[in-house]
Design a protein around this nucleic acid. Structure first.
Length: 581
RNA sequence: GCACCCGUAGCUCAGCAGGAUAGAGCAUCGGAUUCCUAAUCCGGGGGCCACAGGUUCGAAUCCUGUCGGGUGCACCA
């Protein structure tokens, strides 16, 4: 069924076949659902290589007790020559021990599939649109964007690896009032570039130095003719140019993190195309948008609050606290009003949508999910839509809140951060925690090259592998699978760990949790480091054993494949696998 | 006041769509280096999985409530 080889999937299928046989023989009731049957490696390796709860799950529908059922299953499984032993344990677990041949075959599979090891067809080519970053084009990328950027990017890679067709998308908010402010701020810098003393940047404008080059460019291209001109003459043009300039810078910042989007969608273009009107029309026709007045928010007093009639989306119908305006009192679209149309636009070219947002936007999840569900259901088929919230990162330096960068005005930029600690450290650290948990990012700790720092720990494992391969080559050894039968239990333990990779990728993709890959890599590295150190106590357990060229060639082959798996995992995270440390 | 996220070892965190005696790292204590990178490894101590109920063969995991921390709460994005 699966063109891609996975040992665990293969055994899950075998066990399922055994259950089907039992059903055919009448030991299990016909049509008994087997969805809860799990086939997994047990936590405790002494329990064997694989465990299944089949007997416990099916005992009740079979009207028998788990152990009796387990005995029937075990009898069939034990007949398989690739199964070394099958035993019943505890409340009715069935523990399988697999023969070494299974693991050696897996090792060969890694070698054969190389960069493809770990990929699967699980997604069946479904098109998933992952929207991430989408930072406002009013300033450079800063820390607030970083985690979402990295998580979104890794998630996209993960889904791709699991057989989805992924669209990496960035939504450019170039239509709100903040880009008008940007244009005015750039106008100031433009005048400054022409020699005017503009003094302090007024409050409410963007103060950062990063606008200076854009102002200078405009000064060079346009000359002085807009210096004293009324805003109506320059605002639109300045806005367009300023946004273009900022987006260029943002792309450069993203490139520093190894992030590249496929599609940049403009909110201004979306509005110009009349998409929000279309959505409003449909929603009104279905009584999901009405003109009404919001109540004053409770628990919070607003001095300038006054009742206004606005077109409201009935998000309360979907569990939201309040209905939400899609237009402002000036007649322009709210962010939400445009955003719901934007999601419908994305749905035109995708089977599934994922947004990666900062947790500060958590309050808007309900309304957008509600709107997308209402629209997509009403206009055809409901599109699966998931919003991943990424919690805030607190920047620290030796436990103290990190200082702000001068050049940006008021925040630590991604460029600063990558410059200081490097892309790999930033990415891995951001991915080594589940996204919904808050995180501290301490500049001092994160560059520490120690076990405390998982990036180096994993990269060190890879570097050691490359190192031994270089040494082997220098001494005339050639990695070879000719005598894999010489490998011992210690070697097999390492293969078993590596063999988990495909199912980890699938599980991580299914749960949409890239951090699992980071943790898996840490464990694989730990297993490898332990393996390596066996050679300190026992010469025969070294990778290159002087008196045993065939064993050495087999071990070199083995570690080559371990290196391959580490590389594949790091590639998913967008982290480089280094040759040496 | 309401919504969302979090609460697991002294600290930082895992816990794989409910499974077997709850796991890592740091810190701490004790070991390993004439030897392929010791940036590593091996071992010891350290837990009412915030609390209280519920669901079932079985709960850190699912449901309800409470407490504690974070975030966000009109036509800002």
């Amino acid at each position: 069924m699966n063109a891609i080889h996975t040992l665990y999937a293969a055994y899950a299928a075998r066990i399922d076949a055994v259950l089907a046989a039992l059903e055919a023989e009448g030991h299990l009731p016909a049509g008994c659902p087997r969805g809860n049957v799990a086939v997994e490696p047990p936590r405790d390796p002494s329990h064997g290589d694989l465990a299944t709860n089949a007997a416990m799950v099916l005992a009740k529908p079979a009207a028998t007790n788990p152990r009796a059922l387990a005995e029937m299953i075990v009898e069939k499984l034990a007949a398989d020559p690739l199964v070394e032993s099958a035993e019943i344990a505890g409340p009715g677990f069935i523990n399988l021990k697999l023969t070494p041949a299974n693991w050696l075959a897996e090792l060969a599979a890694i070698a054969a599939m190389a960069d493809g090891y770990g990929k699967s067809t699980m997604g069946q080519g479904r098109r998933v649109n992952v929207e991430y970053v989408s930072a406002n084009p009013t300033g450079p990328m800063h820390m607030g964007h970083c985690r979402g950027a990295v998580v979104g990017d890794a998630l996209a890679s993960l889904l791709e690896s699991a057989g989805h067709e992924v669209i990496r998308e960035y939504y450019v908010n170039d239509a709100g009032s903040q880009v008008d402010t940007l244009a005015r701020s750039v106008h100031l810098r433009y005048r400054e570039a022409l020699g005017e003393d503009i003094g302090e940047i007024p409050a409410g404008m963007y103060p950062g130095d990063y606008l200076k080059p854009i102002g200078a460019t405009l000064a060079a291209e346009l000359g002085g003719r807009f210096v004293g001109a009324p805003e109506s003459e320059w605002l639109v043009d300045f806005r367009t140019r300023a946004v273009a300039g900022m987006m260029e810078q943002i792309r450069a910042d993203l490139a520093l993190l190894g992030i590249e989007h496929d599609v940049f969608s403009s909110e201004a273009e979306l509005q110009a195309a009349g998409k929000p009107e279309e959505a409003e029309k449909w929603l009104r026709a279905h009584d999901l948008v009405y003109d009404g007045v919001l109540e004053q928010p409770k628990g919070k007093t607003l001095d300038d609050w006054e009742p206004v009639e606005l077109p409201l989306f009935r998000s309360t119908k979907f569990g939201d606290d309040q209905d939400r305006p899609i237009k402002k009192s000036d007649g322009k679209w709210t962010y939400f009003g445009a955003d719901l149309a934007y999601h419908m636009q994305k749905a035109e070219t995708a089977d599934e949508l994922i947004d990666v947002w900062g947790a500060d936007h958590a309050g808007t999840v309900k309304r957008i999910k509600a709107a997308v569900m209402a629209l997509s259901e009403g206009q055809g088929t409901a599109i699966p839509f998931d919003v991943k919230l990424v919690q805030m990162v607190q920047l620290l330096r030796n436990g103290e809140p990190a200082k702000m960068s001068k050049r940006s005005g008021n925040f630590v930029t991604i460029a600063d951060m990558v410059d200081e600690v490097g892309k790999d450290v930033v990415r891995f650290t951001m991915l080594a925690r589940k996204p919904e948990a808050q995180m501290d990012f301490d500049f001092a700790k994160v560059v520490e090259a120690s076990k405390d720092n998982p990036v180096f720990y994993v990269q060190y494992a890879h570097a050691r592998i490359r190192s031994i391969l270089r040494k082997g080559e220098a001494e005339g050894y050639v990695p070879s699978d000719a005598h894999l039968d010489l490998l011992t239990a210690d070697d097999l333990a390492l293969i078993k760990q590596a063999a988990q990779f495909p199912r980890e990728v699938e599980a991580a993709a299914k749960a949409r949790e890239p951090h699992r890959i980071a943790f898996y890599l840490y464990e694989l590295a730990a297993t490898f480091h332990a393996f390596w150190n066996l050679g300190n106590d026992d010469q025969a357990k070294r990778i290159i054993v002087a008196q045993a060229p065939e064993l050495s060639a087999a071990r070199l082959f083995l570690v080559t494949q371990i290196g391959q798996v580490i590389r594949n995992g790091l590639a998913l995270l967008g982290v480089e696998a280094v040759e040496e440390l």
